[in-house]
Computed example of a mutant assay.
Amino acid sequence: DGKSTLIGRLLYDTKSLFEDQLEAVEAVSAARGDEYTNLALLTDGLRAEREQGITIDVAYRYFATPRRKFIIADTPGHIQYTRNMVTGASTADLALVLVDARKGIVEQSRRHAFLCSLLRVPHLVLCVNKMDLVDYDQTVYDRIVDEFTSFAAKLDITDLAIIPISALQGDNIATRSPNMPWYEGPSLLHHLEHVHIASDRNLVDVRFPVQYVI
Rank of each mutant, 00 (worst) to 15 (best):
C127D: 06
E49P: 02
Q52M: 10
T37C: 12
I105P: 08
V106L: 11
F114D: 00
T91I: 13
R120P: 00
S29E: 01
T139M: 09
M131T: 06
G104V: 00
Y60D: 03
E23K: 07
Y136G: 00
K130M: 14
L98S: 00
I54W: 13
D34Q: 15
A24Q: 11
I72G: 03
E51L: 09
H78P: 01
M131N: 10
M85H: 08
V106C: 07
D137W: 11
C127V: 15
D34P: 03
K130T: 13
E49A: 07
T82W: 06
I79T: 09
K103D: 15
A27R: 14
Q21R: 05
E107Y: 02
M131H: 05
L96I: 14
D93V: 12
V121E: 10
L94I: 15
G77F: 04
E35Y: 12
G104T: 00
Q138C: 10
R68Q: 09
V25I: 06
K69H: 09
T75V: 14
Y136D: 01
G33N: 13
H78T: 04
T55F: 02
R110C: 11
R47H: 06
R50K: 14
I79R: 15
A59E: 12
Y81D: 08
G45W: 02
C127Q: 07
I54K: 08
T43G: 08
K130F: 14
A59S: 14
A101H: 02
I71F: 01
I54P: 01
V97M: 07
L126N: 04
S109D: 12
L118H: 04
V140N: 10
T75D: 01
L115N: 11
G88C: 07
R83A: 13
N129K: 15
I71Y: 06
Q138Y: 04
S117W: 04
Q108N: 12
R47S: 08
T55N: 03
V121K: 03
T91Q: 15
D57V: 13
C116G: 11
A31S: 10
D44E: 13
Q80H: 10
F63W: 04
I72A: 09
F114S: 11
R120Y: 06
Y136I: 10
L22N: 02
G53L: 12
R110I: 10
Q52V: 00
S90N: 08
E23Y: 03
A27E: 10
Y62L: 06
Y36L: 11
L41P: 00
L124I: 05
D132G: 02
